[in-house]
Design a protein around this nucleic acid. Structure first.
Lengths: 153, 153
DNA sequence: GACATTTATTTCGCATGCGAACTATCTACA
DNA sequence: TGTAGATAGTTCGCATGCGAAATAAATGTC
């Protein structure tokens, strides 16, 4: 075939969706490989970061912080609880709610994740100026209002 | 909590990974909702586009075009074959290989996807200049070499 | 106080896509 | 020719995360 990237030569408006998709998967795959020894995935380190800032947060709050719906955060918490990274404790004031807490292992994993993220970020920004990265960040952020979830319209 | 986006105020180097992740999911979710009636998902329309340009492509070639590994393209083809969007026919010259062909239903779905993608692209680029979109596209593309798959190093 | 509504979380079935291991076929080389 | 190695796909188990529906507890209303 000798033209493995003919997709890339497709019409301009087709590319951004594809590029975003590929970039996302490349990054996820990379992080998964990097954190293989620690056993923590990209999504899991996201929750570790949240708890690092606000230990004891409600599940729903953690989900909102990570832009995850109820099933997403529920599954993530299940896996991380099974891996002994976090603990789930009932909220004393609300029988429906659960609060999430880092375990010692979770704290250690968070420290490792922080170091790994520094490396990832260095790669993410390499070759681009501050101003360009700001454009990128602004564009990525803009997608949240352009493609709202549910009733946000 | 009244501060649902405290994650967003995290250190600057933590944000791009998160923003990319969220942007990707928002977009996927949006496309899934839009194409609900046609029953075609974002990943599936990707393969439709590839076949629209090169009907009869090898599975491996389609996977390369979409940046999918063997299991990824295999599963996608399974689902799309079951949905009668594409057909899998043995390559006459290579007993290991299969070639993919659009069905009439697949062609119709492709036409619908093209229209939908125009709408998506309008949103993706809204509020940003050509030059800014170019920066974004260049940045997204750069991730492919910064986070290579496997042995590419 | 009882009942309707809202809210927090879980469960189910699904699509996506990965790495590792497997099967089948083809190619090259001795 | 015969066998070692490369190549095309498949399968398995997993993580991720969605929408829809269920469960359970809190809240508001009459």
């Amino acid at each position: 075939m000798s033209d493995p990237d003919f997709w890339m030569s497709a019409r301009r408006e087709h590319r951004l969706v594809f590029l975003l998709n590929v970039a996302h998967r490349r990054l996820q795959r990379w992080i998964a490989a990097q954190t293989q020894q620690s056993g923590v995935t990209a999504a899991q380190s996201g929750l570790l970061f949240v708890l690092g800032q606000r230990d004891g947060v409600l599940m729903g709050e953690a989900g909102a912080a990570l832009d995850l719906g109820p099933p997403g955060i529920s599954g993530l918490v299940d896996r991380m609880t099974a891996a002994n990274l976090i603990k789930r404790r009932a909220d004393p004031d609300d029988g429906r709610a659960w609060r999430l807490w880092l375990t010692p292992a979770g704290r250690a994993a968070l420290a490792q994740s922080k170091a790994g993220l520094a490396e990832v970020n260095a790669r993410l920004t390499a070759g681009f100026s501050e101003a360009e990265i700001d454009v990128v960040a602004r564009w990525l952020t803009s997608l949240q209002s352009k493609f709202p979830k549910g009733e946000d319209e």
